[in-house]
């Protein structure tokens, strides 16, 4: 589904990504791990069109993504979340989800001005679909929460809403940047389960960046380890966690090896 070969990204002499090859098959959950500054987020930024690579090929469903603006890439079917949650804070929970559906619906300025019938039925559909997507997270984002501004949500709910917003773009591939960061163990386990459901029930292919090794172990089919912008190991969680190079580069660095 996603085929990346020989990807280079440079920031003023710093090789954030160095000759990276990366493939994702449809229906997989792939975890990207690596120490801080390894280039994980940069990798997402390239795939989602926010950073232009200096070199390399980037194919999604057989078509190149190079040179496309972020909104075009979203339209192709790739959605993402951000490490430092980026919501539309002055909009309500439901609006956050509604607004990102519109890369699928046909919105025209004239339709809106004239309030055509097509416009009104579409708006109702968008609202219903928005509620449905939010319902995926149980009751945490539903009911009275629909109309709350996104800014008042708890941290965990903000992360959930960001995932809901990504789902609302009807993607095929979702990129999650540290989805459980800042959550307590219960919330984290719950979200891990939900990420599994995202693939099993909704059919999304998922790539996630995660520092929490228990999450990685529980849900990833494959793990890719980045260090200094290079992929130093790939394989199942068991394979990767037994790899001496990985232990040195990554696991060795964290204080408790978790």
């Amino acid at each position: 589904m996603l085929e990346i070969t020989g990807l280079h990204v440079e920031f003023g002499g710093l090789h954030a990504l160095n000759n990276l090859d990366f493939t994702v098959e449809e229906g997989e959950i792939v975890a990207v791990i690596g120490p801080n500054g390894a280039g994980k987020t940069t990798f997402f930024n390239v795939v989602s069109g926010m950073v232009k690579p200096t070199e390399g090929r980037l194919l999604f469903q057989g078509r190149s993504l190079l040179g496309l603006d972020p909104n075009k890439i979203t339209a192709r079917g790739i959605a993402r979340t951000f490490q430092n949650v980026r919501l539309f804070n002055n909009m309500t929970v439901l609006e956050n989800v509604m607004v990102s559906q519109h890369c699928r619906t046909r919105q025209r300025i004239l339709d809106a001005l004239l309030q055509t019938r097509r416009f009104r039925t579409e708006e109702a559909l968008v609202r219903d679909r928005g509620k449905e997507v939010l319902g995926f997270f149980g009751t945490r984002l539903t009911g009275y929460r629909f109309d709350q501004p996104a800014s008042v949500l708890s941290y965990a709910n903000r992360r959930r809403l960001e995932i809901a917003r990504a789902m609302a773009t009807s993607p095929k591939l979702i990129l999650l940047d540290e989805p459980v960061a800042g959550m307590n163990p219960v919330e984290s386990a719950e979200l891990t389960q939900l990420i599994g459901k995202l693939r099993d029930e909704m059919g999304y292919t998922i790539v996630l960046i995660e520092h929490d090794m228990s999450v990685v172990r529980d849900i990833s089919d494959r793990v890719v380890v980045l260090d200094h912008g290079e992929a130093i190991a790939r394989g199942t969680y068991a394979e990767v966690s037994a790899n001496p190079q990985v232990i040195e580069a990554y696991l060795g660095q964290t204080t408790d090896g978790s």
Binding site: N71, A75, M91
Partner: peptide, 18 residues
């Protein structure tokens, strides 16, 4: 709504297809 989204967070709006 899309304009509001862009005003709130342009990067997030772009990645929501705006």
């Amino acid at each position: 709504r899309a304009l509001d989204a862009i005003r709130d967070d342009e990067v997030a709006a772009q990645s929501s297809g705006k």
